[in-house]
Design a protein around this nucleic acid. Structure first.
Lengths: 227, 227
DNA sequence: ACTTTCATGTACTGTATAGTACATTTTTTC
DNA sequence: GAAAAAATGTACTATACAGTACATGAAAGT
């Protein structure tokens, strides 16, 4: 048995593999994975509509037949990619479930990790694709939201419920969490979605720090200043 | 002279017009406008990639030749539509330049008008299209940002400069304005871009009110609470 | 009224592409 | 080691579409 392994960026696949028995499934799986990697890369790069199956086949060094056996159609491939992306997002977020105290530093850290995740080329591309193809895959749009933003919001809500006096807040805990996340991500996500700017990690941290400061003041329960 | 006027939804165009002299230019302009209306509607509905020129020609009851004479190419048509949308946005925002005091009611009103504008099907569609085609029309992406978000932010910044003591703020005035707008729009725009939910005006107002309250507390300049 | 000019409509071309059918190669089974 | 089964590669089909060329028809000038 021998195999030739190609490296294409972060993408690994096998060709010309003469195997001992029982390895077939692995090969099939490897091909499938190679196709998904290629499709993912191309969808991120050019979007769903502009990516042709031939592109994907070329890049993955696979074949049309294999693609159709694994995914059934172009749409099937898209669904698989998006689902996988959601799964990855979920795992990344769960792995990131650090204990959270309501100090500036702690919230800034949470915010920066959240922003860093949401501004990943991957996250942005998935967002764009779903925004565009939302009529094709509406249930995956929900899935995306539920596995990316919602877990973080719920983590925040739990934390707030334990530490904040709901009576003294200017609005419900749910809204507090929503407003907080929005203030962190709103501007950044909007600009990055449009490909307008690529803020440095330092700039992002500074922005998040500003948002956190205003937020912590904001839920402090002191009387407002009118001008 | 007589003309037959067709109504197709909000779209008006003329066919079979036998005119007195000098009206030709008007007809040409009407045709051009009909095409832009049709293209706009279709781009909003199906996106740029999924809309074919034949669709647009059919819907506008115009002809291929006219389309190419007016816009040169499909991309030219897209550019025209986006530019026009930016222009409309700019006008809508300028018309909306009410005097602003830093009271809760005043900021809620501003926020609600801002959100209402940004969550318009039109605004969302333009956003989606630019996000998707940003590599085709990068300068229009900038243009979009500069004519939609930026004017409002600058209006806020001017207002803040007049009324707030920069020394007492937790961060620069620019960031204050950015964070404020983000806290209002972040969550709403994200969900609406994905087509996930259609909040009622009441819900939007409640959300904006929450954001404004937290914000006004937040810039109050009091010491933060740590937990 | 006749010609010129401009606007419009339509038929066509070349290309790209999703999906299918079949041929080829590799692995398993006996 | 030959036949069967499975996986893979490739050639093809049908279609959709952007863009072009040309034909048709109406208004303007004289």
């Amino acid at each position: 048995m021998y195999c030739i392994v190609h490296f294409f960026g972060r993408q690994v696949f096998f060709t010309r593999i003469f195997m001992c028995s029982g390895v077939r499934k692995d090969l099939k799986e490897a091909r499938r994975q190679a196709m998904m990697d290629a499709a993912e890369a191309l969808f991120l790069e050019k979007g769903y509509g502009r990516t042709s199956l031939s592109d994907i086949i070329r890049r993955s060094k696979g074949s049309r037949t294999t693609l159709y056996e694994n995914f059934g159609s172009k749409e099937g491939l898209l669904r698989t990619i998006i689902k996988e992306a959601c799964l990855k997002a979920q795992q990344a977020i769960q792995a990131d479930d650090k204990p959270l105290s309501l100090t500036e530093e702690s919230l800034v850290d949470l915010g920066v990790r959240f922003a860093a995740f949401a501004l990943t080329p991957m996250s942005l591309a998935v967002f764009r694709i779903i925004a565009m193809e939302r009529k094709l895959i509406p249930e995956l749009a929900e899935n995306f939201f539920e596995t990316s933003i919602l877990p973080i919001r719920e983590q925040l809500i739990r934390r707030f419920q334990n530490s904040l006096d709901a009576e003294k807040l200017p609005c419900s805990i749910d809204r507090v969490a929503t407003v907080f996340l929005g203030s962190i991500l709103g501007d950044l996500h909007f600009r990055h979605s449009l490909g307008l700017s690529k803020d440095t990690p330092e700039e992002i941290r500074e922005h998040v720090r500003s948002a956190v400061r205003i937020f912590l003041n904001g839920i402090g329960g002191v009387e407002r200043k009118a001008a």
